[in-house]
Every structure is written in C-alpha cells, then in structure tokens.
Amino acid sequence: MLQADCESVFEETCSGMLPLADRSGLIEVLGELHPGDTLVVCDVARLSRSFLCLAMVLSDLQKRDVKLRVLNQPREFTSLDQMLDQASHDLNTLKRLDHSRHIKRGIALAKKAREQAA
C-alpha cells in the first residue's frame, strides 16, 4: 500500500466471507471515501468473497464516483461493468483454488487413513 502512494491505510483481519454489517474495517474505509477518490486493495477478494456483497460494494463505489484500483490487476476500474467482470473472474479463480485445496486435503486424509489401517 505504501508503494501505491495511499494517503490512508486501513487493515481488516476478519474474513471476506462475513456479511458487510460485520466488517467494521470495510465499513470504516467506505465511509472515508469521497467523490474522485480511489480505493486501493491488494486483491478484489479483500472486498468480499460473496459476489452479491461485492456487487453491492462496487455499485456503491460507482454511485459515489469512487474508482477502484486492485494491486494485482494492471488497470484502474472506472465502470461497474469492468469491476464486476474482473471480480467475477477473480472469485471464480478463488473458488477453483479452494476446491483444489479441498481435493488435495481429502486425498491426503484418505492416504493417511489407508496407511493407518494397514
């Protein structure tokens, strides 16, 4: 965030899966934004892992003329369509990675159970 030349840095340690009402850090940063500001996040999943919640946040940003910059993306998003397209792609990628981790964990547990049974 320092390299992104941010004026203020907010940190939130809770899960992006929580409802917006339970995310005091995100609520605080959204309250600090003004028209013309740019919200900078490391990854779009930091805003939310729920597409519906993310769409609500992105819609709010657009209505208030706040741009979104995602550090792991090469461009700044200025339209809701751009934001949602990228967010959908990123969330689907996260789901695939989570699914892959669950499969690998299941395989490892099955191998361990087989070894213990032998």
Rank of each mutant, 00 (worst) to 15 (best):
P74D: 09
S15A: 00
S100N: 08
L94M: 07
R96L: 10
D65M: 13
S8G: 04
E12P: 04
L91C: 01
D5I: 09
C42G: 14
Q82D: 05
A21R: 13
L84R: 09
E7S: 12
S100R: 07
S48D: 11
E76V: 15
K67S: 14
D60T: 14
M17Q: 15
Q73M: 07
R114I: 08
K111I: 03
R105E: 07
M17H: 13
K111M: 07
K95M: 03
L58H: 02
H34P: 01
A113K: 10
T38H: 05
H89F: 15
F77V: 09
L30C: 14
E12I: 06
L18V: 06
G16I: 02
R96G: 02
I27T: 15
E12R: 01
S8M: 12
L33I: 09
A21V: 10
L54G: 08
K111N: 08
L33D: 08
L58P: 04
T93Q: 13
M83T: 00
D65Y: 08
K63S: 11
R114L: 14
L94I: 00
Q116L: 09
S48F: 06
Q82M: 04
L30W: 04
L84N: 05
L30K: 08
G36C: 07
S100G: 03
D5F: 12
E11K: 06
V44D: 02
V57M: 11
A118K: 10
L91A: 00
T93E: 14
L94A: 07
L33E: 07
S24V: 13
L71C: 11
D22S: 10
L18F: 12
K67N: 10
A55W: 02
S88T: 09
L80A: 05
V44Q: 01
F51A: 09
L61R: 02
D90V: 14
F10A: 13
A113E: 07
E115T: 06
N92H: 11
Q82E: 11
V70R: 02
L109S: 06
R23M: 10
V57P: 03
A118L: 08
A87W: 04
L26Q: 01
P74S: 10
K67G: 04
S15W: 04
A45M: 04
S8H: 12
V66R: 01
R49C: 03
L47V: 09
L20Q: 14
D37C: 07
A21E: 14
R64H: 12
L91E: 00
L39M: 07
T38S: 13
L52P: 03
G16E: 01
K112D: 05
P19Q: 06
L39R: 02
A117H: 05
S59H: 15
M56D: 15
E115S: 06
S88M: 11
K111H: 11
S79G: 07
A118V: 08
C14R: 02
L109C: 00
N72A: 04
P35W: 02
M1Q: 10
V40K: 03
T13E: 13
P35D: 00
M83H: 00
L109V: 05
M1E: 13
K104R: 11
D22E: 13
S59P: 01
R105G: 04
P74Y: 00
C53K: 15
L33R: 05
D85T: 13
R46D: 12
Q73P: 00
R69H: 13
V66T: 05
L80T: 05
T38Q: 09
V40C: 14
S24R: 13
P74Q: 10
Q86V: 09
L47C: 07
A108E: 10
